[in-house]
Amino acid sequence: MYLVSIDTNLTQDQLTTIYQRRWEVKGYHKSLKQNASMAKSPTKMVATQANHFLTAVLAYVKLEVLKLKCGLGYFRFKA
Rank of each mutant, 00 (worst) to 15 (best):
L3N: 04
T16R: 13
A39V: 03
K30N: 07
A36W: 01
T8S: 09
A36R: 02
Y2R: 11
L10D: 08
K33D: 14
H52K: 02
T11E: 13
F75H: 14
S31K: 10
Y2T: 05
Q12R: 07
A36M: 06
Y2G: 07
S31T: 07
V4A: 08
E64K: 11
K62Y: 11
V57F: 01
L54C: 10
L68G: 03
V57A: 05
L54V: 13
Y19N: 13
L68H: 15
T43P: 00
N9E: 08
I6G: 11
V25P: 01
N35Y: 04
A47R: 12
K40D: 12
V57Y: 00
G73S: 14
D7C: 04
Y2W: 06
W23V: 04
K40C: 05
F53P: 00
L68T: 14
Q20K: 12
H29Y: 14
T17F: 02
P42N: 09
L54N: 11
F75G: 14
Y74N: 15
A36I: 05
T16D: 10
H29M: 09
M45G: 08
M1V: 09
R22I: 09
L66T: 06
M1H: 09
Q20F: 08
E24C: 05
Y74K: 12
K40A: 09
Q12G: 04
T17L: 03
V57P: 00
Q34G: 00
